[in-house]
Design a protein around this nucleic acid. Structure first.
Length: 117
DNA sequence: ATTATGACGGTTC
DNA sequence: AGAACCGCCATAA
């Protein structure tokens, strides 16, 4: 049965696993934009990243992945806010809304550079 | 191959 | 600040 393998599952898991890996290495108190995550994979598929999160993000700290500009993931801002306050993510106050302080919250995988290659 | 969609990004009005 | 439009990439049908 090993000769069968699972091509379709492998192909999708490649991008999905890459996204999951990057998201999992984001430290608390910091966030990455969908575009940054995609850029870390060498792609610009910010949308594909979001789709992966929606599908496999159930096991990932999805709240550490936000949109550009400092806005949290759509349909999840309330839940994300709880996590940000709990982890000490720098937030900025608005008149009727809040946003992340990208200047401090934005983080990059190269910052911690655990990757030898 | 083609079409439509998506937890997006950026620009423009 | 909010809405509209286009661009970009990956996935599903």
């Amino acid at each position: 049965m090993p000769s069968d393998a699972v091509p379709s599952d492998d192909a999708a898991a490649d991008f999905g696993a890459a996204v999951a890996e990057v998201v999992r290495m984001i430290p608390p108190g910091h966030v990455m934009t969908y575009g940054d995550v995609a850029a870390a994979l060498g792609s610009r598929a910010s949308r594909a990243v979001g789709k992966v999160m929606a599908h496999e993000g159930a096991d990932l700290p999805w709240w550490r992945v936000v949109r550009a500009g400092g806005h949290p993931p759509l349909h999840h801002e309330a839940r994300a806010l709880e996590h940000y306050r709990a982890e000490g993510t720098p937030l900025v106050q608005g008149t009727a809304a809040w946003r992340l302080d990208m200047r401090r919250a934005r983080w990059s995988p190269s910052t911690d550079a655990d990757d030898p290659f």
